[in-house]
Nucleic acid binder design. Structure first.
Lengths: 193, 193
DNA sequence: CGATTTTTTGAATCATATCAACGTACGTGG
DNA sequence: CCACGTACGTTGATATGATTCAAAAAATCG
């Protein structure tokens, strides 16, 4: 029985058995407990993480101490500080498990080797990054012209389970608003008109 | 003499002569006049454009008629509606030349063929998309915690020539503020203290 | 169960948007 | 090449929406 990770790759490209073996050899499974950190700001991001189970978030801290949440990663998603991973520079993101989670880790060396030796893996990675880019661009476009209410509703539509899994203040930090404002948004939406 | 485009690829990966020939065979050079459109919302984005000379912008229109500028692309940059290009769905972006420009176009078919037959091209594209993703993420992170003044200053620092090449209202549309606000920002920054 | 964190609610404040008017620059046709 | 018209930038007054600060209510954790 292959890991979810291999299955996931196989939905995008058709791996040969040899390729599956090669990838298997270069991945590491890791469990991480709720509230524990996969990555802390200032450290180098040595691995990309594929989420097999659980939920994590990446965020940055500002002067005032506020958090801005960059991404929630649930089952089937990747999370990492990509710039740090690729460049070896210190990470600017913190990545924390919101729930007990199971990850598949890939080191830079393993990633480089697979990109070179496994054409299907390179094709897969190109797809992953392209999709991530398009998703980020969509999120970006929504900001200037949607009201806060609409942005919250969009988020709910895209990730209906999110409010059950993460505290409200984190959703506020993701939307870039204060928890007080989000509370008022929810109140408004409950009693429309 | 190779085109700027080939030179650009060669700074990232080392192409063989055969690869150069193959790429040359699949690209099209195109000039586009100021104020003309490379792509209009609703049309399918049939080409990616590499800017050899000039300056373009991609933007979306909102209900109220306001524009939100997604990207300025100058010499050495790519511009396209990537989602439309890859999926064949109608584009959500308009792409307009701000100056008379010279582009290198690549069709989807040519892109697919090169990804398959030219490993260095795939490596190159992975780098391009990865860099675009990281750049977008950086821009995204700046929004919630920087003031409008800081965001304008950052933009100037990154692209000092931009104000000389694009009207102020477009810079406002890029920053997601009104032209009036940008005018006041500039006034504030001129008379510090 | 008590302690701590999270969410809600209210009031005051601040930044940007909006509306409107004016001056300036620009390009376009005569 | 000039003059006119249109678009662009600036400035002011007002409105709007989110933030901030404060405190109470609710939920969560050990």
């Amino acid at each position: 029985m292959n890991s979810t990770y291999i299955q996931h790759i196989n939905t995008k490209v058709k791996l040969t058995e040899a390729e599956v073996d090669l990838i298997q050899k270069h991945i590491v499974h890791k469990k991480i407990r709720k509230k524990h950190y996969f990555l802390q700001e200032g450290d180098v991001c040595k691995y990309t993480a594929f989420v097999e189970k659980g939920l994590l978030r990446s965020y940055t801290l500002h002067n005032n101490g506020n958090e801005h949440i960059v991404q929630f990663a649930m089952e089937g998603w990747f999370i990492a500080d990509l710039y740090s991973f690729l460049s070896g520079e210190p990470a600017v993101y913190n990545i924390e498990a919101i729930e007990d989670s199971e990850l598949v880790l890939m080191s830079k060396a393993a990633n480089d080797l697979l990109l070179q030796q496994c054409p299907n893996y390179q094709t897969f990675m190109l797809q992953v990054i392209t999709n991530a880019y398009i998703a980020l661009q969509k999120r970006f476009n929504a900001i200037p012209h949607l009201t806060v209410d609409e942005r919250y509703q969009n988020l709910l539509q895209q990730y209906p389970t999110l409010p059950k899994r993460v505290p409200q203040r984190m959703i506020a930090a993701y939307l870039g608003i204060t928890p007080e404002t989000l509370s008022r948004v929810r109140k408004r939406l409950q009693q429309p008109k």
